Computed example of a mutant assay.
Amino acid sequence: MASFHHSDAWDRLLEQKPELPFFLLGGNGVTGNTEPQELAKDRPWPSCGDFEAFHCLRPTSNLDLYIFTQHLTIGGNLGEADPRIKAAVLVPGLTHGEGCGFINIFTWNEGECTIEPFPDGTTDTPPSSSFEPGSSEGPSVQRTVIFLEQHTIVGQNVFILGGSEDMTACTGGSSDAESDPCSMAITTRSLGLSQHYSGYNDWRVNDNFLDWHGAEDKQGLHLGQPPYGSPSVWTSNVNTSPGYQSLNTFGEAYWMLDFDLDCSLTNGGWFVIKGWLSGEAGEFSGLEEDVTQQVCSGSAGGPPPFPSSGHMAKCGHINIFHYDRGDCTINKFP
């Protein structure tokens, strides 16, 4: 039995012969997007709604289109009226139809299946507003967002460098992110699959740390160009913009990094970041200048906890900063 997990909390369990590995290929049969997608370990998983039917393929054989009719057994208290289940299982075709957001159990080349809800406490949810990062209450790993306002031109990108301590205190004895005790393991989150997010999605492959060392070993390239840190993406609060993000309630040109962070790795729930501007920016290219952080506004704002030459962010919260400036806002998640 093999299990796959996605940050939107959906699993597939497939009974198959254990002596050979297998890949999942599929598309959104509901919308007609049936172009096969191979899901490798270094490729971000699609979000719910993008991947609701799949074939299994052994690498030593061709894709055998075995015609079957899927027979559904609803688990738990979902009921057959659940639209996410019906959307998946009622799509005609040669694939297993699955319910996004549930545990889906199939047998190779057979139509029998079971769809179960996740046990309480196993799905990913936004952090509780009552949880104080760095405390002993609540889960340690928290969704964290960085917004860094910087107006740019086409070809410029903003990357995020950072760690549990100020840059000057961290990089002296370490040559890479993995060995630096100030580096913090992260898991970046998908923000979209359109062309607007192509650089962000390419560069976040194998981006395993928020660190002060720039590109990591085997971190993804975009159009042959290496990253300079953890990627962010230009966002807007205008809902017709290709860069629209609902958490951006401020304006245009707020570069966004969305990731999961273990708050126990931070300095009492806080960490330090700086921007890196790439592209044709003249004297402004490279690492952001030193800033003196002011008292942050917002629902989780306050004074900086320790001296630093960078922006000080709070784990488990939405952190809004401005390039080369010390004013800031820190909010709890909605």
Rank of each mutant, 00 (worst) to 15 (best):
M1Y: 12
L13K: 04
E15I: 11
K17T: 10
P18Q: 10
E19R: 05
L20C: 12
P21Q: 06
F22L: 14
G32D: 09
P36I: 10
E38G: 15
K41P: 02
C48M: 13
E52F: 07
H55A: 14
C56K: 02
R58D: 09
P59A: 09
Y66S: 15
I67P: 05
H71P: 03
H71Q: 10
I74F: 02
G75K: 01
K86Y: 10
V89G: 01
P92K: 06
P92A: 14
G97W: 01
G101A: 09
E110W: 09
E110Q: 14
I115E: 00
E116P: 00
F118Y: 08
S130C: 05
F131K: 04
E132S: 08
S135H: 05
P139A: 12
V141A: 03
L148C: 08
G155R: 03
Q156L: 13
G163L: 05
S164E: 00
G172Q: 12
S179T: 15
M184R: 00
I186H: 03
S190A: 13
S194E: 11
S194Y: 06
S198E: 08
D202I: 09
V205C: 08
D207C: 15
L210A: 04
A215L: 11
A215R: 06
E216A: 12
D217Q: 15
Q225R: 08
P227E: 06
Y228P: 04
Y228R: 07
S232C: 09
V233C: 08
S236R: 03
P242E: 12
C263S: 14
S264P: 05
S264M: 10
F271V: 06
F271Y: 02
G279I: 08
E283R: 07
E289I: 14
E289Y: 11
D290A: 15
S299H: 05
P303E: 06
M312Q: 06
C315D: 00
H317E: 05
I318C: 03
Y323W: 15
T329M: 11
